[in-house]
Design a protein around this nucleic acid. Sequence first.
DNA 1: TATGAATGAGCTTTCATTCAT
DNA 2: GATGAATGAAAGCTCATTCAT
Lengths: 194, 194, 194, 194
Amino acid sequence: MGFKEIKTAKKKEDIIRSAAKIVSKKGYHGATMEDIAAELLMTKGALYYYFENKDDLVYHCHDLILSSAIKTLEDYLKSNISSTDKFKKAVEVHVEFVIAEKETFNMIIKPQHTFTEKRLAPILDKRQKYANIFDEIIQQGIDNGEFKITEIKMARMMILGALNWIQQWYLPEGKKSKKEIVDIYSDYLLKLLK
Amino acid sequence: MGFKEIKTAKKKEDIIRSAAKIVSKKGYHGATMEDIAAELLMTKGALYYYFENKDDLVYHCHDLILSSAIKTLEDYLKSNISSTDKFKKAVEVHVEFVIAEKETFNMIIKPQHTFTEKRLAPILDKRQKYANIFDEIIQQGIDNGEFKITEIKMARMMILGALNWIQQWYLPEGKKSKKEIVDIYSDYLLKLLK
Amino acid sequence: MGFKEIKTAKKKEDIIRSAAKIVSKKGYHGATMEDIAAELLMTKGALYYYFENKDDLVYHCHDLILSSAIKTLEDYLKSNISSTDKFKKAVEVHVEFVIAEKETFNMIIKPQHTFTEKRLAPILDKRQKYANIFDEIIQQGIDNGEFKITEIKMARMMILGALNWIQQWYLPEGKKSKKEIVDIYSDYLLKLLK
Amino acid sequence: MGFKEIKTAKKKEDIIRSAAKIVSKKGYHGATMEDIAAELLMTKGALYYYFENKDDLVYHCHDLILSSAIKTLEDYLKSNISSTDKFKKAVEVHVEFVIAEKETFNMIIKPQHTFTEKRLAPILDKRQKYANIFDEIIQQGIDNGEFKITEIKMARMMILGALNWIQQWYLPEGKKSKKEIVDIYSDYLLKLLK
DNA sequence: TATGAATGAGCTTTCATTCAT
DNA sequence: GATGAATGAAAGCTCATTCAT
């Protein structure tokens, strides 16, 4: 990758991050290309140099965050700790993303209502990939006797649902700190697996 | 209530149901007044005879379903069964609504991105009222020794999060039947409370 | 005229008066048929039993007031007083109408922007008829030596312009009472004629 | 001001002038954004690049003309001529604007029926500023003995009313030329002040 | 006569997208 | 690479008008 490409890639990521911020705050439809450009002190038109269209841009927002989450999780998966600890870590990571990235790590939004077909498949794929990590952790736990459930996928969906939901009510200035939340969730959700 | 009022009320509910259907399918922004009217073989203009504006109409969609869910749940709450059974029933009811009403019973969407302030408060109120029912069931279970957790609200939020999430993946033609899903969810989520 | 016709005529006048009130307050475009009907505790539809359309209704508003003003003025014209006194009376009457009927006696609005061609001619005719009364008073005053100007029509237009303009600034709670206004206007405008 | 700003400002003025023309012909409600755009061979949407909304655009129409009238008048006010001559000049200028700019210099329309509150205040302010110029001329005339009246504001309102009214009846192809009208009006209205 | 309901044309406004410069 | 300007399609909404009952 030459110098130019690197610069372009960086600019692209800048745009993605800004866009993610705005989309988080206002939602897909509430965030206009104008808003996103304004945040970057650019003009609308310039965005189209880097991204095909709004769909494409917002897709990359999701993709960036999701990829990053997957990478983070996969690193923990490799480490030599108990499945219970892996699960706890996974909860911690997920909560972190859910809170920090809000809308963009919003596994909650119906992508069908937002993305065109072209973008839908890759997003669903990546979501699946992310979910698989949880499945693997659970499977591993079952294999080594730490967990004992039969419906892995259902359990995983409950867990992810519970975690994603945090986004709906979490406030930085709320009663419980992020750490407390993570602990309670880890604790309770583990009961579900054991 | 005179004959006319009844007829009007019925028509209003018709409209609400149709609107709910469209909004479920296409999301708030994707569903146009035109779409909703077309479904009813009416013209856009006619909708405005019954509802102030789109916001008002969609608000009533949510209100109708949510009120209905609350009523259904409250009936079970009064009945003379164990807290565990009440919980199972609650899960069943919730899943039923989540699946049948889809978007309209979508406790998931950020209402901030959809409703104007005027409509936001009542919706949040009613959601809270709904959540309270779950809290009560849990509290009752704790009081009579069936459940033994300390963080009622956190547990309730995990549970509702898990249940709402079903909407994201449920397909009528999926592998698991609705009944199976309800059973597994009840089963697993109860572990969380015990 | 039979009983029915009388009743209908009365109702029509009721509607006209209400319409005039609303149109005065909100202007032609601001006043909706709904508004007018509401004031009368009727429904929109009913208005169409009495008047062809909005244009027709508002036309009759203007016509009613204008006719009434003409009649009032003509009575004074016949009376056996000096032209100066006639003029003073005319000013008084005009101010009264301008203030009380506001928009409806609004000789100011461009009828071209409000009425369709069909209604335009009769309105302009009646306005002309009204203006003629002022011309006659002035002519009479010239004939008997009280006034001494040559451009009767121009003078009349100045005078009516000045008087109509009162509508733009008059406030019931203003510094000057209606009577004071009439006196000052009579006084100053007479200088114009002498 | 850079080149771009100048170009934009020019375009804005172009739009304002076109809008003024249309609004003059059809009135505020009769003139659609489509009409205005068509006159400029633009599309509706483009207008919104330059102006917030219709209200904003029409406000600027009024503002432009009124500002221009104020400027023109103020120049005469400074010159070293008699108050009588100043008054004559003021009448001439006013008539010129009334005739040339029609609706846009329409001090006649009730701005309350047209503008939203936000725009109302500045318009009323500017109208007042314009009126003040007439008051000053009159006051000056009184001070130097050319005029002898006590009710300055009332006189000014009569005069402006009379002048504005010209708009209602003036036709370019009418019997009296613009110059004749100005002369007669100046002549007669001066009698009012002396 | 009067009403409730519906229509439909027309309006303002928004915004993703395009493109000459 | 970036901008200013423009487009055009679509949306929400209003309201005079109609008409069966």
